[in-house]
């Protein structure tokens, strides 16, 4: 096990161990069928589904920002590809 999925709605997982490029992602329930496309620092996020540019990035079952670019499964998800977005207040 090297990642954690916090909520079933999430399109990102969180690395709970350092993940190396090419490693298969495995959560508590088993392999996710996704391979890391790059090295991921522990506690950083990794896409588990395709996230198209402009789509919400979902963690804790909630929107934490919008994809600034198309994000492939297995990619690092952080400030380089996620924009802060304040929702209707």
């Amino acid at each position: 096990m090297n990642v954690m999925i916090i909520d079933p709605k999430d399109n990102v997982a969180v690395a709970v161990e350092p993940v190396k490029k090419g490693e298969a992602l495995e959560a508590r329930g088993g392999l996710l069928g996704v391979t890391a496309r790059e090295d991921i620092t522990i506690y950083h996020k990794i896409a588990i589904r395709s996230i198209a540019k402009g789509e919400p990035v979902v963690k804790y079952g909630e929107h934490i920002g919008l994809a600034k670019a198309d994000i492939e499964p297995g990619s690092h998800v952080h400030t380089h590809n996620v924009a802060d977005h304040r929702e209707a207040l």
Binding site: T41, K45, Y60, E62, I64, G65, H78, V82, H85
Partner: peptide, 11 residues
Amino acid sequence: GGLTTLEEKSL
């Protein structure tokens, strides 16, 4: 540490 946005931190 891996937190990207304020929403994420506060969540």
